[in-house]
Design a protein around this nucleic acid. Structure first.
Lengths: 187, 187
DNA sequence: GTCTATATGAAGATAGAC
DNA sequence: GTCTATCTTCATATAGAC
């Protein structure tokens, strides 16, 4: 990897975490600079604007999601087991979810207020899960219901993450995951 | 009402809507001034800081929620019918929810990132609903499950509002409300 | 109580040396 | 490619006249 590439990645990684922990609009360039060890003025060699940095962060997250879903598709033998794997996400990321909510959901909520061109990119993260979930329902022979069911599973996870975050309640998140698992099992 | 009181209310009403539509941190004083017709410098006669303005907005919302829930308690004869009434909220506010999400949820998500002292006040909005929902489950003889069930209903509504907002999908919100109604009916 | 003018600070962005 | 210094803009907040 070239030196410039390595620096770019350090900036994106630092911004990724800060945007999650503090929100996009509430994160200043100088904080990303401090966290990444790259001087502020040097940013504009890599990104022409803060928006472009957000786009790079979203692209990075999209790549991570794509890879994860491809691995699940390859390594988990049945669509039902894959759905159960999806339902576990909030528990796998429990501490972060309790403290900062869902990284996809909170970013979409923030950008959806009045930065619609940015939200449309953030929505792609949901759409990766949505397409993958629809595929699982297809494979289960539930193609007729796949749109409703996929959105339903996105929705349940978002509700659990949001209320879990509001009340810092790990028990509740576990209960909602159990409820999702039960629903998946009886499909 | 004294003149000063009327002006104060106009500021709070304008801020209330702007905080919902644009988010708290993304709303500037000057915008509240324009929307309310009160000159910028005059704000500090009514509120010592932006945070204090938010507190006034939250207090205003809390009062509205309290009144609404008291009316429901008084006018709707059975706890089950009251729960059904709760489930209708996202449909009653459909256009706003599609465009801006849930006013309670989106504010909590924003403040929960790194303004915890403000989030704790915003959380009170949820807690009013939570307590009222628990009361309904109590009256239904489901006191043992009331904590889990109340949080569950908060969670379902939040998930529906968030995903409905992300995809601007009214059909999905209607489907989730129908699912909630079905769940309430079979309790 | 109401308003204008302005202070203050921070943020995003740029210029230009090395 | 890397970094320092700085510009500009805009937000919160204040001072003080009326």
């Amino acid at each position: 990897m070239k030196k410039g590439e390595a620096n770019r990645k350090r900036i994106v990684d630092a911004a990724n975490q800060l945007f999650y922990h503090k929100g996009y609009n509430q994160t200043a360039f100088s904080e990303v600079a401090d966290a990444s060890g790259i001087p502020k003025g040097n940013f504009y060699y890599y990104f022409r604007s803060k928006e472009e940095l957000l786009e790079a962060v979203i692209d990075d997250r999209l790549a991570g999601i794509k890879q994860m879903l491809a691995e699940w598709q390859r390594d988990i033998p049945t669509p039902r087991a894959r759905l159960h794997r999806y339902a576990q996400i909030p528990l796998n990321e429990l501490d972060d979810v309790l403290r900062y909510g869902c990284p996809m959901g909170s970013l979409n909520v923030e950008l959806g207020k009045n930065q619609l061109h940015l939200q449309s990119q953030a929505t792609e993260m949901f759409s990766l899960f949505r397409g993958w979930l629809e595929q699982q329902f297809d494979e289960l022979g539930l193609g007729e219901k796949k749109v409703e069911y996929a959105l339903h599973l996105l929705s349940v996870a978002q509700g659990a993450a949001l209320i879990g975050n509001v009340y810092r309640d790990r028990t509740f998140i576990a209960a909602e995951v159990a409820r999702m698992d039960k629903w998946i099992a009886t499909l």
